[in-house]
Design a protein around this nucleic acid. Structure first.
Length: 446
RNA sequence: GCGAUCGUAGCUCAGUUGGUUAGAGCGCCGGUUUGUGGUACCGGAGGUCGGGGGUUCGAGACCCCUCGAUCGCCCCA
C-alpha cells in the first residue's frame, strides 16, 4: 500500500468474503421473517437534527453525551448521524402522520454511528436490524415482537442464546424503584467501585449489572422492581410472560436487567449468550446481540401525543459472528465454468456463458492469461462442470466439451439432465452425450 | 476517555545480543514437463520494514511522538 492511499476511518469496516456472506444472510433472514409477521418495511434518513436524539434518548446517557457524530451543516444547523433507529422512527411517525396506520408494525435495517473505541463486535459504523410496533399498548404486542426476534435468531441457526426479560414498570414504579436504589447504594457509597459511585448520580440502575466484585455484594440485596410494581404494571408483565410461554418462546427472568436509555418502560429484554457457550466465546466481551423494550414515553419527548410502542434492535455484525461457522448456508453454488484453450474462440465462450446465465445458472468465465493455464484455473474454481470450447475439425465451427466435476454417478446424471434442459431452450446449441472421454458435448449450430 | 499487545511483499509470517544488496510459504504473472489435464519443476513481478523524529560508525530491531489494528474497561447492538 502506498503512503498516498488514504486509510479507512477508524472503526469502520470493509466487509468481504465469508463475513460479507454471513452479513447478507442475517439481513435476508430478517427480511424473510419480518414478512411472516407482517412488519412493514421503512427507510429513514441516516441523519437527523441533533435534538431528535438528544431529546428522546436522554441527555445524560453516554450515547448523547459523548458518542454522537454531530456536525453543523452549511446552514449552521446541528445534525447527527443516527446512533440508533428508534428515535428517528418516532420522529418519522410523528412528522408523517403515521398515526392513521396505528397500530403499525415497522422493520428496517442499516448503518448506525457511535463514536466509541472499537473492539470485538463493536464499531463506529455498525449495522442493525430493527423492529418496532407503534401505537399498541397491549402486552400481546410485546409478545409478538419477541416471538419474531426469537424466530429470527432460530432461523439464523444461532444456539446457546437466551432471552433475558425484565420489567421496569410504569413511570411511577420506575421512579420509586430508582429512588430506593439510590438510597440503598448511597448508604454504602464509599465501598462501591469508582465507576458505580459515578453511576449513582448519573444512572443508578446501571449499578445493578456492574461486573465489579466490590459492587456485587450490595447488588445482591438491593431493592427489586417487583416491590414497587403497581397492580397494572404487574399484570402487564404477567400477560407478557404467559404470552411468551404460549408462543413457545423460552425466556429467563433477569431482575437486574435495565436498559441504558431513558425512554424504556415496562418490558425490557436482551438476548444474551449463555455463559460458557460457544456463542459467548465468539462474541468476546460484547454480550448482547439483541436488545429492546417498551418505550411508552418516547413520543411525548418529541412533542407528540402519548403513544405506546415496543421495539428491538440487533447488531448485524454480532449476529453474523454467530452464524459464520455454518457456511453451508452461505456459500453460493458455482455451477459452470467456461473456458477455452484456443485463441480466437473467446467470443464463443462468452456467448456460451451468456446463455447459461440467462438460463439462471451461476457461471464463471476464465478467458485471460496463459492459454495453457486456463483449464487449471477453471479447475480450481470447484464448479459442478467445466465447459471447454474447442474447434470442431469436421464442421469448422466449435464444440464445448463438458466435464462434470461430481462425486458420484447419480449427481452426474442430474447435472446432465439439467444441462440438457438448458441447452434445449436455445436454438443455437445442440446437446450430445459422451465424447472422447468427456461427459458430454455441446455443438454450436451455424 | 483509560489500559495491554501489536504493525516486515496482495495474504500468513521468519528475520537470532542493533552489523553488508530484507527472506520463506501461499497467491499472482510467465515458462518447462504432463498431454484432455485438479501433478511436478523453473523463472519473474511485487517491500523507502505504518508514518515522523531521536540514539548510534551503523536501526526492521533500541527510545519518543503519531496513525492504525487487536483485545479488555466504560458503554452498548
Amino acid at each position: 500500500m502506498s503512503k498516498n492511499t488514504p486509510q479507512a476511518i477508524r472503526g469502520t469496516q470493509d466487509i468481504f468474503g465469508p463475513d460479507a456472506e454471513a452479513f447478507a444472510f442475517v439481513v435476508e433472514t430478517f427480511e424473510r421473517v419480518r414478512r411472516l409477521y407482517r412488519f412493514r418495511r421503512v427507510e429513514m434518513p441516516v441523519f437527523e437534527k441533533t435534538e431528535v436524539f438528544a431529546r428522546s434518548i436522554g441527555e445524560t446517557t453516554d450515547i448523547v453525551s459523548k458518542e454522537m457524530y454531530s456536525f453543523e451543516d452549511r446552514g449552521g444547523e446541528s445534525l447527527t448521524l443516527r446512533p440508533e433507529f428508534t428515535a428517528g422512527i418516532a420522529r418519522a411517525y410523528l412528522t408523517n402522520g403515521w398515526q392513521q396506520h396505528a397500530p403499525v408494525k415497522l422493520a428496517t435495517h442499516g448503518p448506525l454511528f457511535r463514536y466509541e473505541r472499537p473492539q470485538k463486535g463493536r464499531y463506529r459504523q455498525f449495522h442493525q436490524i430493527d423492529a418496532e410496533i407503534i401505537g399498541a399498548a397491549e402486552p400481546q404486542a410485546d409478545v409478538e415482537l419477541l416471538a419474531m426476534a426469537d424466530q429470527v435468531i432460530r432461523e439464523l441457526g444461532i444456539t446457546g442464546v437466551t432471552l433475558h426479560l425484565n420489567t421496569l414498570g410504569d413511570a411511577d414504579s420506575r421512579e420509586a424503584w430508582r429512588a430506593a436504589l439510590v438510597e440503598h447504594f448511597r448508604a454504602v457509597k464509599g465501598e462501591l467501585s469508582e465507576e458505580s459511585q459515578e453511576r449513582l448520580e448519573k444512572n443508578p440502575l446501571r449499578i445493578l449489572d456492574s461486573k465489579d466484585r466490590r459492587d456485587r455484594q450490595f447488588v445482591a440485596d438491593a431493592p427489586v422492581i417487583d416491590q414497587f410494581l403497581s397492580d397494572e404494571a404487574r399484570s402487564f408483565f404477567d400477560a407478557v410472560t404467559s404470552g411468551l410461554d404460549a408462543a413457545g418462546v423460552k425466556w429467563k427472568r433477569a431482575e437486574s436487567l435495565v436498559r441504558g436509555l431513558d425512554y424504556y418502560r415496562h418490558t425490557a429484554f436482551e438476548f444474551i449468550p449463555d455463559e460458557g457457550s460457544e456463542a459467548a466465546g465468539k462474541l468476546g466481551s460484547q454480550s448482547t446481540i439483541l436488545g429492546g423494550g417498551r418505550y411508552d414515553g418516547l413520543m411525548e419527548s418529541l412533542g407528540g401525543a402519548p403513544t405506546p410502542a415496543v421495539g428491538w434492535a440487533a447488531g448485524i455484525e454480532r449476529l453474523a459472528m454467530l452464524v459464520g461457522a455454518s457456511d453451508t448456508v452461505l456459500s453460493d453454488r458455482l455451477t459452470y465454468v467456461v473456458t477455452t484453450e484456443h485463441e480466437g474462440l473467446e467470443p464463443i465462450a462468452w456467448r456460451l456463458a451468456s446463455l447459461l446465465r440467462q438460463a439462471g445458472s451461476a457461471t464463471d468465465v476464465i478467458l485471460t492469461g496463459s492459454v495453457k493455464k486456463r483449464f487449471k484455473k477453471a479447475n480450481s474454481l470447484e464448479a459442478d462442470a467445466i465447459l471447454v470450447v474447442r474447434p470442431d475439425s469436421d464442421k469448422q465451427s466449435a464444440d464445448a466439451l463438458i466435464d462434470f466435476k461430481v462425486s458420484d454417478e447419480e449427481q452426474r446424471v442430474d447435472l446432465e439432465m439439467e444441462f440438457e434442459d438448458i441447452a434445449s431452450r436455445f436454438s443455437e446449441v445442440e446437446f450430445a452425450e459422451e465424447y472422447h472421454g468427456f461427459d458430454a458435448k455441446l455443438t454450436f449450430l451455424q
